[in-house]
Amino acid sequence: MISLAPSRRARLAAAALGTAVAVSAATGFTAAPSTASPKPAPHRCAAGFVGLTYDDGPTTGFTENLLSTLQKNGLQATLFNIGENAQTNSSLVRAEKKAEMPIGNHSWTHPHLPQMTHDEMLSELQRTQDALKRITGRAPKLFRPPFGETNETLRAVEKQLGLTEVLWDVDTQDWNGATTEQIVQRASTLQDGQVILMHDGYPTTIEAIPAIAANLRSRGMCAGEISPTTGRAGPPDRSVSP
């Protein structure tokens, strides 16, 4: 048997490959692909979904930046709007809709609702429902009670209007002077299905968004939507998660 030098073997192999390619091009025949399957990449949302929420908007000078920063970082968030703010800043509400951010009801004037009568509560929620439907064409399905204060009377009003009450699992304390680093740290504790409280109107909250997005990605988590059925976070209807 004749032994070929390594370089000779390489040249012959290359020539054979070239011939095979030429035959394939001429005949239309393609060799069967390898049966070896590539190792599947881990699903980017394998660890689950969380609900990012921002209360008290829309706010002139802040909501535009909030929406832009969320979109740049591939995040979806639920925006709980105060009715009178929405009425005054209807163009910002339309911008929220255009950005495909779910919009929720946060009452008309942000009062302490449990201190009110049934009819007063109903007015606060109904006026906000009407305003948001008038601006967006769609009435909200989610309601965030101001200060997280609720009672049986308020829940009855929510049910009457077809609203699901959404509280939170993690409070970033952005409303209480938390730094950007503190907001990011608190957001890093989110687990599958949980909801986090943030607000429209604080620069530190907007500055925290890139790091929040990076942390979610590093943990295999995505920002999802809050279900009107359960009030918990799950896969988004429109995929804009990281």
Rank of each mutant, 00 (worst) to 15 (best):
Q115E: 08
H118T: 04
P42Q: 06
D119M: 05
R217A: 04
L122R: 13
I82V: 15
D192E: 02
D119Q: 09
P242E: 05
L122H: 15
A99E: 12
R11E: 10
T27I: 07
E96S: 08
E152S: 09
S241W: 15
I212V: 05
S37Q: 13
Q129Y: 11
K159H: 10
L125D: 02
E96D: 10
T59R: 03
G231L: 01
A22L: 11
L163W: 14
R138E: 02
Y54W: 12
R138C: 00
I209E: 01
L79A: 06
A214N: 03
L167K: 14
P42G: 03
Q76G: 13
S24H: 07
P6L: 02
G28C: 12
Q126G: 00
S123K: 13
N151E: 07
A31W: 13
P145V: 08
D200V: 05
D174W: 01
A47G: 03
Q126I: 13
D169S: 03
Q191R: 08
D192H: 03
D192I: 00
A187M: 11
N81L: 09
N89A: 09
R127N: 15
H199L: 06
R134N: 15
E207W: 07
R94L: 11
T53D: 15
L92E: 02
S91D: 15
I2Q: 13
S24K: 06
T230E: 00
G28E: 05
A211Q: 03
D119H: 11
R138P: 00
D174F: 00
A156H: 14
H110S: 03
R155D: 15
G18Y: 15
Q115S: 08
A47E: 11
